[in-house]
Every structure is written in C-alpha cells, then in structure tokens.
Write a protein that binds this DNA or RNA. Sequence first.
DNA 1: CCGCGGGCCTGAGAGC
DNA 2: TGCTCTCAGGCCCGCG
Length: 293
Amino acid sequence: MPELPEVETVRRGLAPVMEGARFAKVVAHRRDLRWPLPKDFAARLEGRTVVGLGRRAKYLLADLSSGDVLVMHLGMSGSFRVFRDGDERTPGKYHHERSQHLAHDHVVFHMGNGAIVTFNDPRRFGSMKIVARAALDREPLLRALGPEPLGNEFDAAMLARACRGKTTSLKAALSDQRIVAGLGNIYVCEALHRARLSPKRRASTIAAKSGAPNERAERLVDAIRAVLGDAIAAGGSSLRDHRRTDGELGRFQHDFRVYDREGLRCPTRGCRGTVKRVVQTGRSTFFCPVCQK
DNA sequence: CCGCGGGCCTGAGAGC
DNA sequence: TGCTCTCAGGCCCGCG
C-alpha cells in the first residue's frame, strides 16, 4: 500500500495519541509477519513511553523511554487505526468498526491515555522490530536507504551522482530505495509524468558524463518534491487499503495524472497523447509516450 | 557489482 | 453462484 505520503499521513495520525503516551498493554495476535515479531515483543514495550514518533522513508520509528526504537513497516496492505476513549462514536458504531477490522488486527497497542491503536495487515508484508537506539545507524533495514526526498540533502546533484552510469531505466532507479527513499510505484509514475521524462529512459541520462546534473535531473527533483508535497497535503492516496488513522480516505487518488489511467487522455496542457501501461521489472508503469521523453 | 525475476501473502474484481 | 485467473502503494534473495 503505502509510499512516503501514506506513511507520513499515518505518522501524523498516530503522533497525537502515541507521543508522550505509555504502552499500557500490547497484544500480538500473530507474530508471523514479514519478519517474525520476537517472543518478548510485548514485554519490551509495556510500561515504556513513546518519546517521539518519526519516519524514515516508509518506516515509522517510535522512540521509546527505554532507549529502544520500535521500527514499523506497513508492507503492501498494512494500516493503523486509532480508537479513542470517549470519542464521538456511538458504542454500536465503535464495536461495528472494531469487528470489521478484527480479522487481520495483528498487533494492538493499549495506550495509557486510553487510546487503542491497531495494526491491521491482510497480506502480512509489513512488520515491526525493536532495536536499540544506539544501534540504529547499523540497522540493516535502514542502513542502505538513500536520502529523504523532502530533505535538504536531496538535490539534482545527488540524484545525478546516484544515477551516473546506471544502465537501468529511470523507473527502476527511482523505485530503488538506495537511490532515493520513499517513492513507490504510484509516485514514481506521477513524478516522471510531471517531469515529462520517459520511465524507459536510461537512468544515466539525467547526468552528464562527469556525473554533474543536467536539466532533466533538475526537473525530476522538482517533480518528486512537488508530487510528494501535494500527496501529503491530500492525506495520501486511497486505492484499496490505505486509510487515515481515523478511518477516513486519502484524497490524492483523484489527482493522479497517469497512475491507473490507462487509455485516458494525457492531462498535460496541449498534449493530445493517451496514457499507456507497460510492465517494467514486474510492475505496471503508466505514462504518456507523447509528452514524456 | 548490476539488473531482473520469483516469491512472500490475502483479497478484489473480471471473465467464463 | 462459483470457479479460475490476474493484479495489487513493498522488499528480499538468488541467479546469470
């Protein structure tokens, strides 16, 4: 499911009920997630306070008072829901929603402030891991990640350097979390369309031979930042699984220019092209062959 | 090292 | 209705 904008939307939904709150009780209904939860998962969380809730790429990072960090990933179909004590829901609706959600609620956090946070993931490609904060920079899950695309260190020079000499497609390069961390299938397609660059173009062609960025690299960086910013502002994209933590849908799927729009007119001003779908490295790519060169 | 394909899972939707 | 097939916001591993 989630790419950077969806994960950031989830982070913003969880932060108000988790930051400063204590894990009163933690229940792992099943531990066989993408990687297994440790036997002492609940014990290492219970009684600890969440000092802060951050994000790195598509990972959520809960800093704990114990000096550990709870690392969470949503995989393809993971979602979090927040149920608050005494919110406006009627008891009937509350229980109805809980029962709807229960089938794949693998982990449930009962916070000391009365909030209940559930992690639901039908496909179980997501998971959680507890690591010592002091060892976070050596954590294999995070170690090889490239720069945050909305951070200061991400710019055309760095993107060009990372793509220098790469014979693979731009689509594959942008999907590679070691080059830039947080994009997935939707936002790669959308960013390339905004930058008017073909997903099939060789990644190396955004850099000069010296590795210096060219004008394409500049356009691409601007497009990536813009699409991620717009998507976060819209609460992410809801296709199948993504929900905000209050259960509401994201809205950015209505603003897709190419993703999942095969056969429709290209929205670029003055372009009379039609959105095409091709398969690259096993995933669907949507693009306009007329204005994306 | 590099790029690609398969596999991990479940569920939704299309087509017959 | 029910079956079979394809596809899905991710990522790791192994092969050539």
